[in-house]
Design a binder for these strands. Structure first.
Lengths: 199, 199
DNA sequence: AGTAAATAGCTTACTCGCTAGCTACTTAGT
DNA sequence: ACTAAGTAGCTAGCGAGTAAGCTATTTACT
């Protein structure tokens, strides 16, 4: 009873946030505890743990397990949107950071890698690809000869504007289909509080 | 005023959920809108977008932006815990899935890759490493000569039990420091609703 | 001035996932 | 029976990150 697994959608892509042990199974509701809401995949996992390790305090899974899964699902969805513009999510993040920094859309690789929480080696690679694609330029910094000035090209700016709109569209749609405005605000408030403890 | 960046902690690690364009900056509160709560990194990003693209509906960022960041931060934190046991997060996920499937702690690579949303190629690699580490065994399946039976060893079971406790401990601590019990429950309920729309 | 420490960006080696294609086996259709 | 399609797991090659180490330059100290 514990070992029947539902082979879900033929999984693809990277596995960023499956974390505390994701599982897919339709709500078999193995433990018949009266639950006020439709059981989801995370409830199934928690139930499974309760059966084999009833001593475990699985409380945090109800929050973090879902956060991991939502992050992954939505991440995959927006990634598909960005792909229509010919960039990956990581590459989009670079363009978006430059875009929202305002004119003249210029930052240093150092600022970008710090902002995007990326090693400098990783940043070099992303800039290489984006420069090759003609979406940004690298110029020497006049004030500091160690440093560079990375600037969005017109094409890069245009792409960033299109992609950010597309990405927000997907998010807006999913969010709106699940929660009303008040709930979404509640959720944002609770998440801000939680994020505060994380940063 | 738009281009001063605070080089935050010397970022490392992979960049799974930075998404809609993460930024680090202390709450400079460039737009002096009376905000009832302490502004976080996501508020700063939203403010920045408001300045350069006031037409944009950045509402979803308040939810998904924070979800990405929390997923990443907590993911890194638990990864460190698992590292003390000598396994990566992905490897732990395999052990945990077997552990919570109950006795005899046996699943097929297919079941595992489906559950963990991993390609079969990726699964082969993880099983190779875990088998080499003596944490699980691969045996032929008696019913289907194409298939295998992956089983946790005693060491694997022990490690899974220790690591899941450690990981939950970290999560419990962070969650408890940010929210009281009622808020955590509210959050879990809203996230369940949102995850429902995603799966 | 003169030197030590810090910083910017790049390079190299390594990791680990994905894609795509393969063989072996099983199931379904005739 | 026989064949066609589907499934299980593996392998090869690629992509994109990390970690660690490098050079050039700047800053801070004496």
């Amino acid at each position: 009873m514990v070992s029947s697994h539902t082979p879900n959608s033929p999984g693809r892509q990277h596995s960023p946030g499956a974390a505390t042990g994701p599982t897919e199974r339709a709500a078999t509701t193995t433990t018949g505890e009266g639950r006020p809401f439709a059981a989801d995949a995370v409830d199934a996992i928690v139930d499974q743990w309760a059966q084999v390790r009833p001593d475990l305090d699985t409380g945090p899974m109800a929050v973090y397990g879902r956060i991991y899964r939502i992050a992954r699902t939505m991440g995959d969805a927006v990634e598909k949107e960005y792909a229509r513009f010919g960039v990956s999510r990581g590459e989009f993040d670079v363009l978006a950071t430059l875009r929202r920094s305002g004119e003249p859309y210029t930052l240093s690789p150092r600022e970008l890698s710090a902002t995007l929480m990326l090693t400098t080696g990783g940043m070099t690679g992303r800039l290489d690809r984006l420069e090759r694609a003609g979406l940004l330029t690298r110029n020497p910094c006049p004030d500091d000869r160690r440093a560079l000035r990375v600037t969005l090209t017109d094409r890069g700016l245009e792409l960033a504007d299109g992609a950010v709109t597309a990405g927000l569209g997907v998010q807006h749609q999913k969010l709106g289909s699940a929660l009303d405005t008040e709930e979404a605000e509640q959720l944002a408030t609770l998440l801000r509080k939680l994020l505060g403890a994380h940063e």
